[in-house]
Write a protein that binds this DNA or RNA. Structure first.
Lengths: 241, 241
DNA sequence: CGCTGTCTTGAAAGGACTCAACGCCGGTGG
DNA sequence: CCACCGGCGTTGAGTCCTTTCAAGACAGCG
């Protein structure tokens, strides 16, 4: 089976055989994390970065009074903490939402890439910048949209991101997050998440059975969430030279 | 006078003379933007990135219904849109808050850096990752703190960032943003910004005369804003090899 | 079968918003 | 030199989205 990282990076243009070999080599050590387990502790100084091969993970900050804010969700093919390679110290933490299979990529190996593979370096840089673009978009939904629109927006985002790795079919996908986690991500209480979800279901926009989320009316959900996928920079090609 | 970019990047460790020469060379073309002028339009595909030499700038997104969210403020020494070098298309826009002197750094030149100066590349990457860390922190304040704490937090953040470039003295500095801009950054209406500022002044935490902001009780402001500057990664050294 | 985590529901309280109007001040033009 | 103007800050009142607290229902699991 093909390497999820290579697939992810090749969305932005072909890689040379040599580049693919390197990527293959540095992603060979894998670990499993169960639901709610910590993948990278907040404040730690890891010597490797974690690539999600399988599962669903979150990144979170804690305010000083202990409240949790989830700042990102990660799907297979995403680096959850590539930033720790450059920033060294984690200002945030990474946790498994559902069971995750993770490749641990040594920072030593990443540094070799930056020394010898400038194109690969730019593509890796690109993935961290897309994270930033998603952060900005979440800022916009948090600052300027109501709870219903925020959740609608997120369901659209996830549909596109999971679709890109073959994990969404017919606008439906597995969403392993609890209502508490959704609340921690989108600045709302668990109670309110529950009520908004009921509204969205009641209005025929989505259906959910257990962890399965089905989007019934994607056009309307996009409109309610004011969703436009530009910020994901999904199929953008990066010139090599 | 010394180059603000070199000063900024050298916070993370010494640069070679050759690296400094390159930086000096690529930041030589400057432009002035007046208050409220657009520096980089949302959705554009710039061929250069804008380094703030002087002034105060903002980055913003618009929701589809036209509401503005400011996602970052930039001070001298900051690249406002280094991400456009790698992402190509701007998902956000950059505007001058106060008059800005800006160095326009050609993407062509940045690409040469990624080919020949791996250390410099990592340091530049670092600055975009700090932007990301600030975004995450803002997400946390937006999602999990009330309006008063968000503003308190921001005033502490700016005190540290401006202090690092010599633009804050005795915990006071120029803050050229209007109350409307603060509202657009921190998810609140102009009216509410006004009221919260009055509270902060009334409680003796800050004083403001015109555009000058004075922090009267930094310890208490930090506590109210739950502020800790770790996420700015300010004095972190990056090893060269 | 009981436990624990998750989802659901109700009621009351509150933070923040909208609308609307007014004051202040610096700039500009007559 | 002064009156007008537009941008910005301030105030008041009413409304509403969202929270908190509390408790009950449900379901998977050991």
């Amino acid at each position: 089976m093909s390497n999820p990282l290579i697939g992810r990076l090749e969305r932005h243009g072909p890689l040379t055989d040599e580049e693919k070999e390197v990527l293959q080599r540095i992603t060979s050590r894998t670990t499993i994390f169960g639901p709610h387990e910590t993948i990278v502790p907040e404040g730690s100084t890891p010597s490797h970065s974690s690539l999600i091969l399988d599962g669903f993970a979150s990144r979170h900050n804690h305010s000083l009074d202990g409240r949790r804010q989830i700042t990102a969700f990660h799907v297979p093919g995403d680096f959850a903490d590539l930033h720790s390679f450059v920033l060294k110290k984690m200002d945030d933490g990474v946790a498994a939402v559902a069971t995750c299979r993770v490749a641990e990529v040594a920072h030593r190996d990443l540094k070799e890439i930056t020394k010898h593979f400038p194109h690969l370096t730019r593509v890796l840089w690109h993935t961290t910048l897309v994270d930033g673009a998603v952060h900005r978009t979440w800022l916009t939904t948090l600052g300027r949209m109501d709870a219903r629109a925020r959740l609608a927006h997120f369901f659209c985002e996830l549909n596109d991101r999971l679709g890109a790795v073959g994990l969404a079919n017919d606008d439906s996908y597995e969403l392993p997050a609890t209502q508490e986690e959704l609340g921690d991500a989108f600045g709302m209480s668990t109670v309110h998440v529950n009520r908004v979800l009921q509204d969205l279901r009641g209005d025929g926009l989505i259906t959910s059975r257990g962890k399965l989320l089905i989007i019934n009316d994607l056009a309307r959900l996009r409109e309610e969430g004011q969703y436009s996928p530009d910020y994901l920079h999904m199929d953008q090609k990066l010139e090599r030279d």
